[in-house]
């Protein structure tokens, strides 16, 4: 991000007692992505791995560094999220990134989220088989 605001930097400093996920941009197309529970990078924050302790946050940072060094992603940082209902960012700015521009509802993640998110929500509920199927679909 060109000129990441201070907010994001602050977020990385205060992992205690909060829930955080790792976000970045994909090098090839610049799209917003999140480090997923399975170690892949997902466009959907709902799939992000959540860190609740300093150690877990450090693990996310380490994984981000690996992907950065492999020239897959860039500008990684931790953001605060809530997990009430679903995993969702706390700050306006991150909501915008997770969702897409409010003035163009037909662009950005919001345009594709619809069905996608309900599938994710189900998967997040712990149904392993569904999750497996979903991943297969994605790879196919």
């Amino acid at each position: 991000m060109d000129g990441t605001p201070k907010k994001a930097a602050e977020a990385t400093k205060a992992p205690k007692a909060s829930r955080q996920v790792m976000t970045a941009y994909r090098l090839e197309d610049g799209h917003v992505i999140y480090l997923a529970a399975d170690g892949s990078w997902s466009e959907w924050i709902e799939e992000a791995r959540i860190a609740t302790t300093k150690e877990e946050a450090d693990a996310l940072t380490a994984a981000a560094k690996v992907a950065t060094d492999a020239n897959q992603i860039f500008e990684t940082y931790l953001i605060d999220v809530t997990t009430e209902g679903r995993t969702w960012p706390v700050t306006m700015r991150e909501v915008m990134r997770a969702q897409g521009p409010t003035i163009h509802p037909h662009f950005g993640k919001q345009a594709e989220r619809g069905e996608r998110v309900s599938a994710v929500a189900n998967a997040a509920a712990g149904k392993r088989t569904e999750r497996g199927e979903r991943r297969e679909n994605r790879e196919g």
């Binding site: 060109d2 610049g30 799209h31 917003v32 860039f74 700015r93 990134r97 897409g100």
Partner: peptide
């Protein structure tokens, strides 16, 4: 070429 909020 910027890296903006959602994409390049």
């Amino acid at each position: 070429l910027y890296a903006q909020l959602h994409a390049y």
